[in-house]
Design a protein around this nucleic acid. Structure first.
Lengths: 108, 108
DNA sequence: CGGAACCGTCAGTTGACGCTAACGTAAGCA
DNA sequence: TGCTTACGTTAGCGTCAACTGACGGTTCCG
């Protein structure tokens, strides 16, 4: 999970993931969307691949990349769990508040 | 979103968030769970607070912290959206495969 | 084989991050 | 007032991350 989080914490890499989530693209096609040099994009692709967020496939002299959403499973579990806890807490707080209101109304 | 992702990419900060997601804790109580020095924890708390993942409340000489799950809204939207896209893609791929299987069975 | 296209990798630099030690501040108590 | 507790903040250091430029390895075509 650590690797996945560090990977998507970088804006370029999030854009790369978005690009290859819809269609399979080559390294050159991906690099053409950015202003940084091609080696930089290549490094980002390595980071994403080692984090399990990308699959690499060779096609002749090119390399095609595609998103691998399963790599975000742990991250999703953490964030969703945290979110659910938060909602639960807000809910119980609201209920507590409601009980207090009712007590107040009953007493005057 | 950038700040939130960078914040939760650090293991100590994830543990801090988990700690204060259940109950409100003081800086000292939080620091007692770690082996790093208290100033280090204080810095982590600052990062989390500036990322919108924490609320700070003063109580006399102490400062109480509590998780703020709403700060993860954008992160959750990104990850969940990515996950949904992936599932959809896998689903259509499976359907395509099924059609191919049926064609193969019909022809021989 | 020669050359072009496509892409990864290797130094090397710059900036940011996480940490510790030392200091400063605000609240509580004798 | 003086001491203690509870924290945040700053300066400084080591380390890592992101980037560029130069180079090397494949693949395809004439």
């Amino acid at each position: 999970m650590e690797a996945a989080l560090r990977a998507i914490a970088e804006p370029h890499r999030r854009r790369i993931l978005t690009l290859v989530s819809q269609e399979e693209l080559s390294a050159g096609q991906i690099a053409s969307h950015f202003e940084v040099t091609r080696p930089a994009v290549s490094q980002h692709l390595s980071v994403l691949r080692e984090a399990g967020l990308l699959t690499e496939r060779r096609d002749g002299a090119r390399r095609l990349y595609r998103a691998r959403p399963e790599g975000l499973a742990e991250v999703r579990a953490f964030v969703d769990g945290f979110w659910a806890e938060g909602l639960e807490r807000l809910k119980t707080a609201a209920e507590r508040e409601e009980r207090r209101m009712r007590r107040g109304a009953a007493r005057g």
